[in-house]
């Protein structure tokens, strides 16, 4: 390959991972999926209009398709693979499973990251705060109803308040 390549190291889910000889135009989404074996973040629009590729970059939810991977070498990157411990589910993940918030599931990993991020910053969001926080995550299957329900369930469990 005669592309313009560079090697660098990313810090993903508390691990330093080497990226060898990668084209510098690669998005963080591509590098996670195709080079680092973490396909949890999904690509569905390549322009930040669907949220399927949401990851945490220094604690903020961003679209990994819009992050130039080679320029994110100083960032703390967290992906859906870091949520739960890999075996047991987080409360948000469990709520998604139980509430019917998953159909085809393509938007799900991005939503899980977005909801975890919301609840970290705002443990007791109002209905409208939930909707606004998730307004960048397109779901084509569910119509969002079961997703909102899942968030309510997760909030109730996390705060010990029944809603």
């Amino acid at each position: 390959m005669s592309l313009e390549n560079q090697s660098y190291t990313l810090r993903v889910n508390n691990k330093s991972l080497d990226v060898q000889d990668a084209w510098i135009g690669e998005s963080l989404l591509y590098v996670l999926r195709e080079r680092l074996g973490m396909p949890g973040a999904k690509g569905a629009c390549e322009q930040g209009e669907c949220g399927s590729c949401t990851v945490l970059l220094d604690g903020e939810a961003v679209c990994s398709c819009l992050v130039l991977a080679a320029a994110a070498t100083d960032a703390d990157i967290r992906t859906v693979e870091s949520i739960g411990d890999g075996q047991t589910l987080s409360d948000v993940q469990q709520a998604f499973v139980e509430s019917g918030a998953v159909q085809c599931g393509f938007c799900t990993p991005g939503l899980i990251v977005a909801v975890e991020n919301l609840l970290t910053h705002n443990p007791r969001p109002t209905e409208m705060q939930v909707k606004e926080a998730l307004s960048g995550n397109i779901c084509r299957c569910t119509g969002y109803g079961r997703i909102f329900d899942a968030v309510s369930v997760a909030v109730a469990r996390r705060t010990g308040v029944s809603q």
């Binding site: 930040g48 209009e49 949220g51 949401t54 970059l57 903020e60 939810a61 961003v62 679209c63 819009l66 992050v67 977005a114 606004e132 926080a133 307004s135 960048g136 995550n137």
Partner: peptide, 9 residues
């Protein structure tokens, strides 16, 4: 501006 994810960037 865009979505929350876009506003974070």
């Amino acid at each position: 501006v865009g979505s929350p994810q876009i506003r974070a960037a």
